[in-house]
């Protein structure tokens, strides 16, 4: 008895097909977990409303609307939370027998992880959409026009894609989903809150300000503000990453992608060997 004849394809073609099939699988799974999607939509709504009104009532941004100032920060922050969720999901995956089965199939080693990261972005889109609607409802406006706004969101999504690989690595290293939660939550909270997401860094104590200014998340937020036309005042002097936030964001994302995808794939192939 012979194996069913398979159509001849190049290994690159096969790799793409494998990645597509893996993405498709995660999307079907995602669809079956409406509670997770619901949660991912609810969270940003609460954030926009809560932080907007809680902080907005006591923080005044000169010549601007706090909600407009805040939105870019919340968009960027949501990518951080998503990457932490990826870490937990990957750790859960790795403890299930299904990954073992995939490893006995003749598929590209990268495909399952690529499927995981792409599906994370796609499954996050409803939440992003709802967040944009909420933002518009509370008065946020992309002042530079629709084209720049789209560019801004693209930038944030590229960053989200890159971050998802850090989440994947955390999930692969962690022994359990609880451990993955802890490993990923600490940097997420540090980077997400010690930043320019909620407030201008200039009034922070020096040690905190230095961290917040050079925090890559601040650069992403600043890039978003620039493209949405929500920037208020000049960037802090001498902080290159905030003076060139778009280049910093793209550069950082590319570096993470180039460095961490191979590390993740290697780690994935080696686990449980």
């Amino acid at each position: 008895m012979s194996a069913i004849a398979t159509p001849r394809q190049s290994s690159v073609q096969r790799g793409l097909i494998d990645a597509y099939n893996a993405t498709r699988r995660y999307l079907i799974r995602g669809k079956r977990q409406p509670d997770i999607i619901f949660g991912s939509v609810l969270f940003p709504v609460i954030f926009v409303v809560l932080f907007g009104y809680v902080f907005g009532s006591s923080i005044s941004v000169p010549g601007g609307n706090y909600h407009s100032y805040l939105m870019s920060g919340l968009f960027a922050q949501s990518t951080l939370f998503a990457s932490s969720q990826v870490a937990v999901a990957v750790a859960t995956d790795m403890n299930e027998g299904v990954i073992d089965r995939f490893k006995t199939l003749p598929i590209a080693r990268s495909s399952i992880l690529i499927g995981r990261s792409i599906s994370t972005i796609v499954l996050g889109l409803p939440a992003l959409g709802v967040m944009i609607l909420c933002a518009l409802a509370v008065g946020w406006r992309p002042e530079n026009g629709i084209f720049d706004a789209i560019l801004g969101f693209l930038l944030i999504e590229v960053f989200a894609f890159a971050l998802s690989w850090l989440g994947i690595l955390a999930g692969l290293i962690a022994k359990s989903s609880q451990a993955a939660d802890v490993i990923s939550s600490i940097p997420v909270f540090l980077l997400g809150f010690v930043s320019n997401v909620f407030v201008d860094t200039s009034k922070m104590p020096v040690w905190l300000r230095v961290f917040a200014d050079w925090n890559p998340v601040s650069a992403v937020v600043a890039a978003g503000r620039n493209l949405f036309g929500n920037t208020i005042g000049p960037p802090p002097a001498g902080v290159w990453s905030l003076e060139h936030p778009e280049i910093t964001t793209i550069g950082l994302a590319l570096i993470i992608i180039v460095v961490f995808i191979p590390i993740c794939v290697r780690r994935y192939s080696r686990t449980s060997r």
């Binding site: 398979t6 099939n21 079907i28 073992d100 089965r101 003749p106």
Partner: peptide, 29 residues
């Protein structure tokens, strides 16, 4: 073909979807 000691089927997919995914990953189209 491998059937491991622990279950390897995806709980969130139907039986048919599970089989189809394995077929696709085996490059059957």
């Amino acid at each position: 073909g491998v059937t491991g000691q622990t279950a390897t089927m995806d709980e969130l997919l139907t039986g048919h979807e599970n089989l189809e995914i394995i077929g696709r990953f085996s490059h059957l189209g």
